[in-house]
Computed example of a mutant assay.
Amino acid sequence: MRSVLIVEDNRDLAKTLMTGLDPLDVDVRLAFDGREAVRQASERLPDVAVLDIGLPVMDGYEVCRRIRALPGGDRIRVVALTTWGTVQDRRSGADAGFDEHWTKPLGLDLFVDLTRRQLLATVD
Rank of each mutant, 00 (worst) to 15 (best):
L51D: 03
E8R: 12
D33I: 10
A96H: 08
L17R: 13
D22I: 04
G107W: 04
W102M: 12
V7Q: 05
A41I: 00
R77K: 14
V57H: 12
L45V: 08
D95L: 14
P105K: 07
V123R: 09
T19A: 13
G54D: 07
G54C: 08
I67E: 02
T83R: 07
V63T: 07
D12N: 14
T122Q: 02
H101T: 07
L45Y: 05
V78P: 01
L24F: 15
C64K: 08
L5N: 04
A80N: 02
L120Q: 08
P56C: 10
E100Q: 06
G54V: 07
M58Y: 02
V26K: 04
T16G: 04
V123F: 03
V7H: 05
E36W: 05
D109F: 12
A96I: 10
V38P: 03
S92L: 14
M18N: 12
R90A: 06
S42R: 05
C64L: 00
L70D: 09
R2P: 15
D12K: 14
V38L: 08
V78L: 08
S92W: 15
S92P: 09
I6A: 00
Q88C: 00
P23W: 14
L114P: 10
A31E: 01
L55D: 00
V63M: 03
R35S: 08
F98A: 12
L13T: 10
Q88W: 13
E100L: 15
Y61H: 00
R2G: 01
P56V: 07
T122D: 10
G34P: 01
V78I: 13
V123K: 11
G72E: 05
I53M: 06
A96S: 12
I76K: 05
T115I: 10
